[in-house]
Amino acid sequence: MLDRTPIIDIRGVNKFYDGFQALTDVSLSVFSGQRVVICGPSGSGKSTLIRCINRLEEHSSGQLIVDGTELNDETRNIRAIRQEVGMVFQQFNLFPHLTVLENLTIGPMRVRRASRRDAEATARKYLERVHIPEQADKYPSQLSGGQQQRVAIARSLCMETRVMLFDEPTSALDPEMIGEVLEVMVELADSGMTMIVVTHEMGFARRVADLMVFMEAGRIVETAPPEKFFTNPESERCRVFLEQILSH
């Protein structure tokens, strides 16, 4: 079912912030079409790991290969990889001085050199997909948090990337808005997008994940398919963590 070469290949990656080790010998392979959910206590390095994948953070050692291109200091490689890997942030990070439509077209127009007409057509298509076509001409500040996050997802989709990274996409949202964002993410997963999601939403994880990853203190402690992960995890720490977040 899956390609044999992984689209993202992380091999023995370490990451140091002066004196502090954020990632220790992390290895993970993600194949095209796979949905990986990473969970773990805060400070365990989940965000750092996915931010290394599109080089918002630099890894200190080890190898990180995205779609056959190795991430190193080569600026050309970094930009090539960023055009294959989209990212959705916890704080949305929409461009406040641009309308929703402009937020969606600026990437394709400036980075991919698409014409305005093509970029707007693409933008409207993806706004439709995240269920807010009517908000195209508003500014981000006029939207609710849930709508803003859906615009952010659409912005990433407009770049037509092969992989999408989600860094705790629902953590900054009011509870009643989490559902609408997760719904869009489930639809995205169903469409076959390769996704790596850092989240505490275990219901979502159960529904879409092909692979669950549990991290603690900068290490990957457990990697398992969801049916095994949720019912019979191997490590004690993972068991305790799941009990804690599933009990309420």
Binding site: Q83, F89, Q91, S156
Partner: peptide, 15 residues
């Protein structure tokens, strides 16, 4: 976050 969003859609520093 604005820098990160711009970079994540593939923009150069200049862009």
């Amino acid at each position: 976050g604005q820098w990160e969003a711009a970079k994540s859609i593939g923009m150069t520093t200049g862009q």
